[in-house]
Amino acid sequence: MFASIMYKEWLKIRWTYLGGAVLGVFIVFEIFLNLGQIIEFNKANSVWNYIIFQKYLFYSDFQFLPAFIGLIVGIAQYFPEIQDKRLKLHLHLPMRENNLLLSMVAIGTVLLIIIYSFLLIGLSLVTLIYFPYEILVSLLNTVLPWIVAGFVIYFIAAALFIEIRWARRILIGVIAFAFVSMFYYYMGYDSFNKAIPVFTIIALSLSLLILLSGYRFKRGTK
């Protein structure tokens, strides 16, 4: 049954997902080309110096990519469910409601893990062409909060779409916006190294928010 839910979710998401992947590959490729150009037009040592001591992020174009992918995957997956209250069909499937809802989130999460890993591998390869592993490590440390933000936006999209009341949607939206904005607070690379475990735990706990929205959908849909 889970495989079948996976099939349905995939049918909903696939084009958006592949679109996100294409965009991601494009952005990683663009970072690669930019880097090549910067190194071509400046001396490599001054580029290193600029990156290490001026804290220039050559990968800053990547910043909003995970969030954007999380958002569009969330929309693609949950918007069709609330059109015509179609979620009723899903909840009517012969499984426990909470399991049905969490299955959806789990599938989206796994797909995001795959696409983010894939893009990070790409970004890592690009980095290692030009720089030693120290710079890659700091890149990963710095990109991680953006990735976590992608999951947050995805989980919030799930809770937001499934929610039936606008007042609650606005509440979740505003709080989540404030929360996500923290992930883009930038004080130089590695500045999230201490906070990221807690941020990650908070982000993961948000995956359960869909259950409250789902409960409210079930209890009060008209």
């Binding site: 099939y7 049918l11 069709p80 179609r86 069909l89 012969p94 499984m95």
Partner: peptide, 24 residues
């Protein structure tokens, strides 16, 4: 359960939707 307006997973085609439901 037939939802008002014959709502179904309209992003699926005939084969896909049969395959989807059959597992349940």
């Amino acid at each position: 359960f037939l939802i008002e307006g014959h709502i179904q997973y309209s992003f699926m085609n005939i084969k896909q939707i049969e395959k989807f439901y059959s597992a349940f």
